[in-house]
């Protein structure tokens, strides 16, 4: 691992239980300023539990949570936010009917004037929104346009720009590319890199290794609530990452299962299954082929 002891966010051997279910067991990971930590895992690997723990929604049952080198305990996501740990959730980021600039400053509106004449500094808000989005390379045509008219990728991007503007030191992105098309996902990945270059530590949750690999400085792979691997970009090729994500031996098992199913099935359907099984086996043994 590329840790030099000054990680901005550092969790050590964190465990979280829900009744008899072990959601997380001895999970350790770090995130440094100006670096992207990718958090990968299949459904049910514990990604959601981990980010909710990192963002202050859950409190870990065991383990240590260090931020800026000091142990922390959060009573609510607000505590985490105040330290600069901002989380952008996939669907809960924006208010569709509200304009971009109103969304950008919602909850932290700049004001001018005093007493009963204190009012929303509209010009400042519009100008700042435009500037901040431009800094992230987001070209908005009209800050008055409702967020609902933006594409999914643009919406995520505005949410990221907002978190950065309001002083996020660590930005947790919950599957920001999951619901997006190829081009849109590329847009979001670009903003992740932008945020990193502005010195923000990014924790990027995804189950798509093709999205993670190009932007990630190191990759934490979760499986069944445990850390399956934690690799820097150098020690890991995209092929390895794809294979680990897919779970090599699981694919092989699946291949055998399909073969057996093909044995039972007859005729063309059986042949199709057999071919699918062969392909899976090849993939499992020789990824990237």
């Amino acid at each position: 691992m590329s840790t030099n002891g000054t990680a901005l966010l550092d969790v050590r051997e964190i465990s979280k239980y829900f009744g008899s279910v072990i959601a997380l067991k001895d999970v350790s990971m770090t995130c440094e300023a100006g670096q992207v930590t990718c958090l990968l895992g299949d459904n049910g690997a514990g990604k959601s539990t981990l980010i909710k723990t990192l963002s202050g929604v859950y409190r870990p049952d065991e383990g240590e949570y260090l931020f800026d080198g000091r142990p922390r305990e959060f009573a609510s996501p607000r505590d985490a936010l105040e330290l600069g740990i901002a989380t952008v959730y996939q669907d809960l980021a924006m208010i569709p009917l509200l304009s971009i600039w109103r969304n950008f400053f919602l909850g932290s509106e700049p004001t001018k004037g005093w007493g009963p004449f204190r009012r929303y500094d509209v010009r400042f808000a519009k100008d700042t929104t435009r500037q901040e989005l431009a800094k992230m390379g987001i070209d908005i045509r009209d800050p008055e346009q409702p967020v609902g008219t933006l594409s999914g990728g643009e919406r995520q991007s505005v949410a990221i720009a907002r978190a950065v503007y309001f002083g996020a030191k660590v930005l947790i992105l919950d599957e920001p590319t999951a619901a997006l098309g190829v081009k849109q996902a590329g847009v979001v990945l670009r903003y992740i890199v932008q945020a990193r270059q502005r010195g923000v530590g990014v924790i990027f949750i995804t189950h798509n290794p093709h999205h993670a690999y190009p932007v990630g400085d190191h990759h934490v792979i979760l499986r069944r609530g445990r850390v399956y691997g934690d690799y820097s970009k150098e020690e890991l090729g995209l092929d390895r990452l794809v294979q680990m994500m897919a779970g090599g031996e699981e694919l092989e098992n699946l291949a055998h299962e399909l073969e057996r199913a093909a044995g039972k099935a007859s005729g063309e359907a059986g042949d199709d299954l057999a071919r699918a099984a062969e392909a899976l086996e090849r993939e499992a043994k020789d990824p990237g082929a």
Partner: peptide, 18 residues
């Protein structure tokens, strides 16, 4: 033109996000 106004729209638009 006030913060309260922004909050009113936000509260009605998506209460959790707000």
């Amino acid at each position: 033109r006030t913060r309260a106004g922004n909050w009113i729209f936000g509260t009605g638009g998506a209460v959790d996000a707000a």
